[in-house]
């Protein structure tokens, strides 16, 4: 049941970043392998512009290989680091997907507010941002 859970998580993140669906929609049905050693996953673009983990027999159209040093630079907020990822296959599709993945942000304050209310969620988020 890992794939349904991760797919739901991905779709939740994309719903918070509605700009992404418009970029991805032309690539509905395309599949890309994302390799970030030691992890890898295959993603499929859905026809509504969403993303999901691909199934067991996916045939990838592109692959995006992100070496660990590049991944660390991306996590540190280096916007230019994405250009150092190694893309093979359908490069146009992979470039769009990579830019979406790099641009997606988690609106954690909004999610937290549903559980504990607006004011505590805002205070916790503020504390996190200042820490």
């Amino acid at each position: 049941m890992l794939k349904p859970l991760l797919t739901r998580l991905i779709q939740h993140l994309l719903a918070q970043n509605s700009w992404a669906a418009e970029l991805l929609q032309p690539y509905g049905g395309k599949q890309a392998r994302l390799i970030m050693p030691p992890f890898s996953a295959t993603l499929v673009v859905l026809e509504d512009g969403g993303l999901a983990l691909a199934g067991e027999s996916a045939e990838v159209d592109a692959s995006i290989n992100i070496p660990v040093p590049v991944a660390l630079r991306i996590l540190a907020g280096d916007e230019g680091a994405g250009t150092a990822a190694v893309i093979t296959g359908d490069t146009e599709f992979a470039s769009v997907l990579a830019s979406v993945l790099q641009g997606v942000s988690w609106e954690y304050e909004e999610d937290l507010s549903r559980v504990i209310g607006d004011v505590p969620a805002h205070e916790i988020s503020k504390f996190g941002r200042n820490a």
Binding site: M1, K3, P4, T7, R8, Q11, G28, G29, V44, L46, E47, D48, G50, A52
Partner: peptide, 14 residues
């Protein structure tokens, strides 16, 4: 129920 919900989620239906 979860299987059916997942089916709808990956359908790409708009």
């Amino acid at each position: 129920r979860a299987w059916k919900r997942f089916t709808v989620e990956v359908s790409g239906v708009r």
